[in-house]
Design a protein around this nucleic acid. Structure first.
Lengths: 221, 221
DNA sequence: TGCCGGGGAATCCTATAGGATCTTCCGGTC
DNA sequence: GACCGGAAGATCCTATAGGATTCCCCGGCA
């Protein structure tokens, strides 16, 4: 109950509102609720078998996280898909912070951190199938990998900033491409190798290349 | 009541929960509730003369914005003050994104944007007194100035990332220094002059210097 | 003196109720 | 055929109620 407490605390699952929050987030991430679609408070309450009160509280949290937007007296909607311009802005933002994080991780990471990085890469290889389950597994690895890089760089600010971008990308990505796992994984491997070799310049370059190629993969043709 | 609608939309003030949200945020910002202090849901409801339901929803929003943290079945607390290490991390993060924003603003801003920048600087000069009201006015100008730079650079991501940092800094700053207005304002002027002169390199350098000096002013002696 | 256990009060959490607002549909009018 | 007005239904918003958990104090015991 100690090492598992990374950011969310030990065991927050005693309260209904947290379960509701996770359930709604999952539905948005999985596109059980499409981007831009209306989200009914009472409807969700009926569907989840709870009262509207915890649903309301969960939606308020999701609003600050920008997964839904609120129109007073009219209800909530899921956040619309990013426009190409917004997608470009988001990747530009990541280019400002993540290459720095990779380079700094190569400088500062301790032995334990490098071991965790190696373990993350090892555990996530070969997303061969093109199924939805495989996609979700890859996406989870992607989130863990980038957050781990930020953590090794010692910056909570960068880690949290990445996390916010990741939610939007997760929603966006499914619409355009699902066969991106192996390519991204190979790029992750190059970043990790540079970090493990303690080569800051190479790590930064590898991360920059990864982000640019990732953006290119998502950009609509 | 029209020009004030910068990012929040025209008139969201028809719903009680929004008023409650603003009221609680103001109390945290003004230190009517100290950092780390417990925040009682029922207590706030009594104090504001409303029922606990909208208070709950407002606190859930503030939780995602990281102004309060929740301990299930125990209640909310205001976010503790940043440690010196966290403060350094936050400024490092700003150094990654804001000099870029200033340089890009110098490249891309249109005539209208430059006029707004000039107006912002002109309207905010001479915070001579050391009163609390003067501090609040300066802080509001500071937020607008940095967000305007991000906006001129064309990046919503940077603008939102700055906004999140500003909330924490606002809370932090009051504990250490209140006579910082004139210095910061002079640095803002240098940034703005470089942007108005369309000199990206100078704008980036001026912003970098501003952030480093701002950090130095806040760092505990 | 220090530690442990129990009881009451306060607080949190979820459900429910009723008033207010919005949406939708339908008939009437131009 | 197009536009406008009103009524029914659904939805949102706020208040209130009751059960569950936690906090706090105080008396008993080592």
């Amino acid at each position: 109950m100690d090492a598992a407490a990374t950011a969310d605390g030990p065991a927050r699952r005693a309260v209904l509102v947290d379960q509701v929050h996770e359930a709604i987030k999952a539905r948005i991430m999985d596109h059980a609720i499409a981007p831009g679609e209306r989200v009914s408070i009472d409807g969700l309450a009926r569907e989840l078998g709870v009262s509207p009160t915890p649903v309301r509280e969960a939606l308020a949290r999701l609003e600050s996280a920008q997964l839904v937007v609120k129109e007073p007296l009219r209800g909530y909607r899921t956040t619309p898909l990013l426009t190409p311009a917004q997608l470009a802005d988001l990747y530009h933002f990541r280019l400002l912070i993540e290459p720095w994080a990779a380079a700094t991780a190569a400088e500062r990471a301790d032995a334990d951190g490098l071991a965790r990085l190696e373990a993350e890469l090892g555990a996530a290889d070969a997303p061969e199938s093109d199924t939805y389950a495989a996609y979700r597994a890859f996406s989870a690895h992607d989130a863990r990998f980038h957050q781990l890089i930020a953590e090794l760089a010692g910056s909570d600010q960068v880690r949290e900033a990445f996390q916010r971008t990741h939610w939007h990308l997760h929603i966006y990505r499914q619409y355009y491409d699902r066969g991106i796992g192996p390519q991204a994984l190979a790029e992750h491997r190059r970043v990790a190798d540079a970090v493990l070799a303690r080569d800051p310049a190479a790590a930064g370059d590898a991360m920059r290349a990864h982000l640019e190629q990732s953006h290119a993969r998502l950009r609509p043709a």
